[in-house]
Design a protein around this nucleic acid. Structure first.
Lengths: 298, 298
DNA sequence: TTGCGTTACGACTCTCGTAAGGATG
DNA sequence: CATCCTTACGAGAGTCGTAACGCAA
């Protein structure tokens, strides 16, 4: 029973119960892993893994219950290291932000600039990925905080806090027919639409709004990235539906932004971090900055 | 960073930061403790303890934050052992009940008998103590479950669940003047009273009831134990005020029980166990039995 | 002097890596 | 025969206990 053995358990699950891969990630040889596994199972008195011959297939019910506790231990141990690092020098360290392109480009610049001024010694890692991946990054301790609009709610291991509300807009070139006249979901749906990939930046909200109106969207192109969408809107591929915050009057003067507030419900961008995770001074500051203006504490 | 070092931290706090005592409880010599402490502080990079010369005085702010995580680790580790023991043989093991005399004698016999029938292999340790001690026993992992009436509410580390409601009664010998006539707080207070020691079995409720009525109690004798009180009531020392459940018609026929339901508010006996503690099958069963009839789940 | 903590050193235990071998597809 | 796991064995690291020392009440 030691930390290495517990870390091993976690890695075995992550690697699909492959001892060789787990060994590599622990900087050990495979035989050491095999032995530690035997020792642990022997100490606990019953097998933690389902086996077929010598190969590991998965966890036993016992193994699963144990793993829950192991995750707690792993988290608490990381917390201790974070607490100590914070005490040694709270102006140092790293901040790993997992988020989507839209947030990284349009929401975060200002808070990150303020953060940088206060904590010039902290390295910021911006990890861009899909919302599904982002949550996995949190769970696997590969990111400290997640910022995104979707997939952040029904997870008991996370603390999720609302960060800010925003609206979708439609963008079209000036010459586009939609630039003039009254806007409606029906009229919008009559054009090819360019918007976010499923799972990104409120795409589900868009889908629901049209679905409820009995309309089917002709999605000509979907991308994770507001800027990619803008590019193809400029090429005349159709109507772009993007986050309102992604429209930059300075750079996007060639495009007309059409307010969809009456047509598509608002979206809420949230921040999330692991429950029971120690928040270093700098991370706490960053979260406070992000929540500023929102006012709602929980 | 290993489990021994963390266990050491916990023990140092328990022993008042005395390395020698902590060493003994870890079955080590004192010099080993000294070295492990240095290694841990060196690894974390800053001191965990306030020192005066060589003597340890207490925890630094860092040390306190670390200790919180250490307690989580310790608990999770114990959980793993409990889970494994439970899986090896859920009919075996032990059940450590911390409670007061009144509960042990008048509430628990029936549930424990049922428990014993279902789990004949489980050793039951009945730890009788004061409510204050009982809570400490839980925190120090020296008891699995606490059952008592007082001091069980404002602790965020515990899960507290109401178990049953009961009332106080007054007991007097047949010849006593109080055995006849109308009962009132005033009349009761005019006699010497024998009741529970402060902190025991609803003593605070009794005190408040008389206090609110502007009466001072003449407590001739207080004891932790209903049977002791009965004994001295029989000797004519005064009026006994005890839990209604402690009156046994069979054995206490020489005493008159007077209902105090209209005079003293009811008390609630609760059960408590550590949050995040793994409940072995037998403990889960025992808790379910205790809550039966209460119906309220939370 | 007694109690408490640190430092030095030898002995022992533990765990690793190397290497060889068995099982499985 | 390639992958995955187990077992045997020697080398090295880590931790303990003994013992000697420093310091304060």
């Amino acid at each position: 029973m030691n930390f290495t053995q517990f870390e091993l358990l976690r890695l075995l699950q992550e690697t699909g119960f492959n001892q060789s891969k787990a060994a590599t990630r622990l900087h050990l040889v495979q035989s050491a892993v095999s032995r530690q596994l035997q020792l642990l199972e022997e100490e606990l008195g019953s097998p933690l893994f389902e086996r077929q011959g010598k190969k590991l297939l998965g966890l036993t019910p016992l193994g699963e219950r144990v793993l829950v506790q192991v995750e707690r231990i792993s988290l608490a141990k990381q917390n201790i290291q974070a607490i100590a690092a914070d005490a040694r020098d709270s102006g140092n360290g790293s901040l790993r932000i997992a988020t989507t392109h839209t947030q990284a480009k349009y929401l975060l610049p200002e808070p990150i600039q303020k953060f940088r001024e206060k904590y010039p010694g902290v390295s910021i890692y911006m990890i861009q990925s899909s919302p599904d991946d982002i949550i996995q990054l949190l769970h696997h301790h590969r990111a400290d905080i997640a910022i995104c609009t979707e997939r952040l709610s029904e997870d008991s291991k996370l603390i999720v806090r609302p960060c800010y509300e925003w609206r979708h807009i439609a963008i079209v070139p000036h010459r586009h027919p939609l630039a003039k006249g009254v806007l409606s979901l029906e009229r919008l749906a009559s054009f090819p639409v360019l918007t976010y990939s499923p799972g990104f930046t409120g795409r589900s909200t868009i889908g629901k709004a049209f679905g409820n109106a009995g309309l089917t969207l002709d999605v000509a192109l979907s991308a994770a990235d507001s800027d990619v969408i803008k590019t193809y809107v400029r090429l005349g591929l159709g109507v772009g539906v993007i986050a309102g915050t992604a429209y930059e009057p300075g750079n996007d003067g060639d495009l007309v932004a059409l307010d969809l507030a009456q047509l598509i419900p608002g979206s809420q961008t949230k921040i999330a971090y692991l429950k029971h995770l120690y928040l270093p001074a700098c991370l706490e500051y960053f979260i406070r900055e992000l929540l500023k203006g929102e006012g709602k504490d929980s």
